[in-house]
Design a protein around this nucleic acid. Structure first.
Length: 448
DNA sequence: GCGCATGATTTCGG
DNA sequence: CCGAAATCATGCGC
């Protein structure tokens, strides 16, 4: 209070010298009627300023009238510009003007993320495109389509909220800005406000508002992240493979016990057969499309390690699958023999391709593949089949007694594993081990 | 609820 | 980058 009064006084002391002479710099008193042109102008200014200073003492009506008078005064523009200039020079209003807003990195990050998540940016065909993309990414797996649609629904919800809020925000920002601009323009008639200052003020308002915008974007991002993590978590959830799938995998595993490293093609085949083509692979590893079979790879990885760790525990399973494979093979072999005999005794139906064609399902084909390796020379078919059948008979007869041998005399001995704990090389199928390594067959499922 | 089975992830070495 | 090994986390039968 006191300060203000003093300031007012000092201002008065400087500019209204004519009336309250306080300093040595006093202007000549108003009564200097003999004054020059300059004197007259000074007096004029003094008058105006005096009026300005005393305007608060007057009644409202009176003040309004005075104000109007002042507004129309011929000196007004000059005074106005001078005051503006002074203001500029004092730098009071320039403070912070230098902060030519460099695009806030955080805001940019948020923008990018929202764009990437499909929250900002163009609507993706009502979300169906996103769904299609998601479906494609998952290899068209049906089991998590529910999760996908759920995710999509939530995302569009977030998107909608975000957009309405953003709209609201923009509207509010614009309204407020125009309001302030109008106010300033209005005031600029009585107060020294340059257009530049208005511009700056608009800038300040926008900066303030952008923090609100940032909050909006941030919370939207958070919402998306939460949704995403939940979705991913859901996708990560372990789901046991179907019985059929494990059976297929086990079949392959035990029939390739000597070298249970399926090649890429084999993995793909297995994945297809097990309908576990879901690309669950976490960090998109490279570009070699290695993701699709990762579940198979996981399975084999786990299986190898667990089998090796406790071979005894897997004996039963091993024998079971050996028997299964053997039976399959026997059937296949029998069919093959029949087939070859029926067709032509000398050159079986292997034809020019050299591959063993089976009139059977993929299942059987797979087991035959595992039986004989990948290639099956036509010329050897007859002999192979014969010896194959022999081997199988042997295996089956042994398999029949596996119950007795459970503890002490494991059929599937750890001979498969070499001293280092690694898997033996595919060359030596020991006597009984697998019905898979028929005489004359070429082990070609080398994965490395 | 507990314990085992099992799919996934992480860590480490080559 | 792949596989082994360790570990985590969940599913599932009891």
């Amino acid at each position: 209070m006191d300060d203000q009064a003093r300031i007012m006084q000092s201002i008065g002391g400087v500019s209204l010298a004519g009336h309250s002479v306080q300093g040595g710099m006093a202007l000549p008193p108003p009564h200097g009627h003999d004054g020059t042109d300059g004197d007259g102008r000074k007096q004029d200014i003094g008058d105006i300023l005096h009026q300005i200073m005393t305007i608060t003492d007057q009644s409202l009506d009176e003040a309004q009238a005075k104000k109007h008078g002042l507004n129309c005064h011929r000196m007004k523009p000059a005074l106005f510009s001078v005051l503006c200039e002074i203001k500029e020079k004092t730098g009071l209003s320039i403070r912070g003007a230098q902060e030519e807003d460099p695009p806030d990195p955080q805001l940019m990050r948020l923008d990018n993320m929202l764009l990437a998540e499909g929250v900002a940016g163009p609507e993706k065909g009502g979300g169906s495109a996103a769904a299609a993309a998601a479906a494609a990414a998952s290899g068209g797996a049906a089991d998590n389509s529910i999760e996908h649609s759920d995710y999509r629904a939530k995302l569009t919800q977030i998107r909608q909220i975000y957009h309405t809020e953003l709209e609201k925000y923009e509207q509010a920002c614009n309204e407020f800005t125009t309001h302030v601009m109008n106010l300033l323009r209005e005031q600029s008639r009585t107060r020294p406000i340059s257009p530049k200052e208005i511009e700056r003020m608009v800038g300040i308002i926008h900066r303030k508002f952008s923090s609100i915008q940032m909050q909006l974007k941030q919370s939207t991002c958070e919402a998306v992240m939460i949704l995403r993590s939940r979705f991913l978590d859901a996708r990560r959830k372990r789901r046991n493979f179907s019985k059929q799938a494990t059976e297929i995998l086990n079949e392959y595993f035990y029939s390739h016990l000597s070298n249970p490293y399926p090649s890429e093609e084999a993995k793909e085949e297995l994945a297809k057969k097990c309908s576990i083509t879901v690309s669950q692979v976490g960090p998109e590893r490279g570009s070699g499309g290695g993701g699709r079979c990762s579940m198979v790879s996981n399975w084999f990885g786990n299986k190898r390690i667990r089998y090796k760790k406790n071979i005894g525990k897997f004996q039963e399973e091993a024998n079971l699958y050996a028997a299964k494979t053997a039976v399959n093979a026997a059937h296949a072999a029998a069919a093959a023999v029949q087939n070859s005999q029926a067709n032509s005794p000398t050159t079986p139906n292997s034809g020019s391709s050299g591959s063993f064609s089976l009139p059977n399902s993929g299942d059987m084909f797979l087991s035959m593949q595992s039986l004989n390796g990948d290639s099956y020379q036509g010329a050897q078919v007859g002999a192979n089949v014969q010896s194959q059948v022999d081997t199988l008979r042997h295996v089956i007869s042994q398999t029949a007694g596996y119950n007795d041998a459970l503890g002490g005399n494991p059929m599937y001995s750890q001979h498969n594993l070499n001293a280092n704990g690694g898997w033996q090389d595919a060359t030596t199928p020991s006597s009984v081990i697998s019905p898979t390594e028929g005489p004359g067959s070429v082990h070609s499922d080398t994965s490395n």
